[in-house]
Design a protein around this nucleic acid. Structure first.
Lengths: 151, 151
DNA sequence: CCTGAAATTTGACTGAG
DNA sequence: CTCAGTCAAATTTCAGG
C-alpha cells in the first residue's frame, strides 16, 4: 500500500496523541473529519496501523529497571526458536535478530536489578543460548513509535 | 504512585486496545464508565499513563530498515544534549543512555539501507558525537509494549 | 462535504463505606 | 473524606444524502 503525505501526517498526529478527535486532526492536515476517518479506516484495513495503545511509565507499574541483552546463540538456532523461548518471559518487551556478532538483542523490563539478574540467569540458561552481554538503561531520552502486535 | 489491582487491569485493557470505550472496560473490570474514566484521569495526572498512541507496522509505512546505533559521545555531553540533538530526526524512534562502553543506544527506522546510511552520516556528524557503531535488525521477533513521552 | 441520529465522553450531584 | 453510581449535557463518531 502506498501512503501519501496526508496519510503520513495523520499517522504522525495519531502517534503523538491517538485520542485527538478526527475534527482536530483534520484541521491540522487540511481535511474534514469524515475524510480523516476514512483514511484511518483504510490504514487500519491495510495493516499500516495495527491498533491503538497507551504509553506507559514503566516505573509507575513497578518496572524500574530496563536492560538490553545481546544474545549469542548456538549454531542452528532459528529465529523462531528464539522467539518461542523468549515469549515465555513477561519481562521481555521486545526482541530482534540482528547483524553483527550477536544473534539477537532483547529488551527486558524488571522490577529492580535483582529481579533483572534472576531473569538474565534464566535466559542465559536456555538451551539455545550460548552467552549473553547486557547493558542497563540509565535514562530513556526518546520513545516515539510502537510497532507490533498487542500480544 | 501505587497502582492497585483495578488500575493494573485498566492499564492492561488499554494497552491491548486504547480505543475501547470506558463502558466496555468497566464491564470487564467491574466498574461503571465514569469510575473507569476517573481512574484513567488519575493515572494520566500521576504520569503512570503518559499518553495514547498508535501501533504501527513500519514496513507498511515504508520504513523497511531498522537499525540500532551505539553512540559514543564527547566528554561533557549531557543526556539532554543527546535528546535535543536526536529529537530533530524523524527517523529516530527511541533513544536511551546506557551503561557500558557506549553512551547511548538509538533505534532508527529508515526507508531502506541507503536512507539509513544518510541518516547515520548526519547523526555521526553531530557536534556531540565522537563515533557510532550500528547493527541492522534482521527480523523483529517480539514487540510488546510502549513506554515514554510523546516528544 | 454536509447533515442528522446514535454512541461516547464528561461533569455534577448523590449515596455508601 | 474517599470512591463509585446515576443522570444529563456536550462532543464525537458515523451513516445517510
Amino acid at each position: 500500500m502506498r501512503l501519501n503525505d496526508l496519510d503520513e501526517r495523520i499517522v504522525h498526529a495519531l502517534a503523538e496523541d491517538a485520542r485527538r478527535s478526527y475534527a482536530d486532526i483534520g484541521a491540522q492536515v487540511g481535511l474534514s473529519a469524515p475524510a480523516v476517518k476514512r483514511r484511518v479506516d483504510r490504514l487500519l484495513a491495510a495493516g499500516a496501523i495495527t491498533g491503538f495503545t497507551v504509553r506507559v511509565d514503566p516505573a509507575a507499574l513497578g518496572w524500574e529497571t530496563e536492560a538490553l541483552v545481546e544474545l549469542y546463540c548456538r549454531h542452528n538456532t532459528s529465529p523462531e526458536d528464539i522467539r518461542r523461548g523468549l515469549s515465555r518471559y513477561p519481562e521481555v518487551a521486545s526482541a530482534s535478530t540482528v547483524t553483527g556478532e550477536a544473534d539477537a538483542i532483547v529488551q527486558v523490563f524488571a522490577s529492580d536489578v535483582r529481579h533483572f539478574e534472576r531473569v538474565l540467569e534464566r535466559i542465559a540458561g536456555e538451551q539455545f543460548v550460548e552467552r549473553t552481554k547486557s547493558v542497563l538503561v540509565l535514562s530513556p531520552l526518546l520513545r516515539r513509535y510502537t510497532s507490533g502486535s498487542p500480544t
